[in-house]
Amino acid sequence: MIEISAFWTAIYIAMLAAFTGYVVISRVPVILHTPLMSGSNFIHGIVLVGAMVALGLATTPLEQVIGFVAVVLGAANVTGGYVVTERILQMFDKSGRKPGKEA
């Protein structure tokens, strides 16, 4: 059970995290919007960790089935998100070898 102090600690952390996300993303060149969207899509793949916990703590068959689905979806989010981002950025790497002009 989550204690009330732990809850507020989590709120503090969430606030700082929100600020971090804002600072990291603001003022990026337009051409990086897609890779960044894809990259942040990969990062919320951390849902896999939660799915593992959910399935790991599941006791009834129904919970197990739902938890199993959660892990399958979460794992697809992780690997798919990674590969898509990697492939998109690979294109930039090729063009990035020509120094000089930035986006």
């Binding site: 969430a14 995290a17 971090t20 990291v24 960044l36 899509n41 951390i46």
Partner: peptide, 9 residues
């Protein structure tokens, strides 16, 4: 933390 970062970003 990761979720909130993605949410904000």
């Amino acid at each position: 933390v990761a979720g909130v970062i993605v949410g904000a970003a």
